[in-house]
Amino acid sequence: MSNDQAEPETRPCGLTPKGLERQKRILDAARDVFIEQGYDNASINDIMCRAGGSLSTLYRLFGNKLGLFEAMMTQTSNRVFSAFEAVECAIKRQETPEQALKRYGHLMLERVLSPEAVGLYRLVAMDCSSERERIQSLFYEQGPKRINDKLGAYLQSQVEQGNMRIRDTEMAAYQFMEMVKGNFQLRSLMGIEISEAERELAVEQAVELFLYGATCR
């Protein structure tokens, strides 16, 4: 059995502070290598050379290459998308829907167009490995679906309060998200710069269209 396929005999139930730091180093190195080389070409040996430590530690913590990728995706998603908890705070602060959606839209563009998020999107879009289906599922669950669920919950709360009339809040959340992103994600993948003025206009117009439509009021 090759190193990339080896499985550990046991997994730790808990980690010491030193162990957590070691785990973080491995995950940070894995993120860089996966983004640079893609999943299929990424080497476990290369990752451990950057992180320091032994292969046995990697297998004990993560099991195998796919387990390492899953843990890396979770760690990165937690860092990139944790700020979307602010959408839930909007409910408690009783912001108007327009205020909450604008804040959500700006935050979404900030996070989705970050170099780290764009790198992960490129990795997933270009992956041709045998684990492609699992990798795409992980990305979807940890990225788009995760942030969409936050917005969908907010929209549902507005429906229940009688502030909005939406047939399917989950679908509406995706529709709003796509209105804000437009072609920005594709442009970011191609290295085309997106100005602050464009971002501002995208959010303002998406909120206007989402809440009031395109007809004259």
Rank of each mutant, 00 (worst) to 15 (best):
M1F: 09
M1N: 15
S2R: 05
N3G: 00
N3K: 13
D4I: 07
D4Q: 11
D4V: 08
D4M: 00
Q5E: 15
A6C: 12
A6L: 11
E7S: 11
E9S: 12
T10N: 00
P12D: 09
C13R: 14
C13V: 12
C13S: 14
G14N: 06
T16G: 15
P17T: 01
K18L: 13
G19C: 01
L20Q: 15
E21K: 13
R22C: 04
R22W: 09
K24V: 02
K24Q: 15
K24R: 08
R25A: 11
I26Q: 03
I26F: 12
I26V: 11
L27C: 06
L27M: 07
L27K: 05
L27E: 03
D28Y: 15
D28P: 02
A30R: 09
A30S: 12
R31C: 05
R31S: 13
D32V: 08
V33E: 09
V33L: 09
F34A: 11
F34M: 10
F34R: 11
F34S: 09
F34D: 04
I35V: 12
E36F: 03
E36D: 15
Q37S: 03
Q37A: 08
G38A: 02
G38D: 05
G38V: 04
Y39T: 03
D40V: 10
D40E: 08
N41P: 00
N41S: 12
N41V: 02
N41E: 05
A42F: 05
A42G: 03
S43E: 14
S43H: 06
I44M: 07
D46K: 12
D46W: 01
I47A: 05
I47R: 06
I47S: 01
C49Q: 10
R50Q: 10
R50L: 10
A51H: 13
A51I: 12
G52P: 08
G53L: 01
G53K: 00
S54R: 15
S54Q: 12
S54E: 13
L55R: 09
S56Y: 08
S56A: 10
S56H: 07
T57V: 08
L58R: 01
R60D: 05
F62K: 05
F62I: 01
G63E: 14
G63W: 02
G63L: 02
G63V: 08
N64Q: 11
K65I: 02
K65Y: 00
K65F: 10
K65W: 04
L66S: 01
G67A: 13
L68V: 02
M72W: 07
M72Q: 12
M73R: 01
T74A: 07
Q75Y: 04
T76Q: 09
T76R: 00
T76D: 14
S77W: 06
S77D: 06
N78F: 00
R79H: 13
V80L: 13
V80F: 04
S82R: 13
S82D: 14
A83Y: 04
A83R: 10
A83P: 03
F84Q: 06
F84Y: 09
E85A: 15
A86N: 05
A86L: 14
V87E: 10
V87M: 13
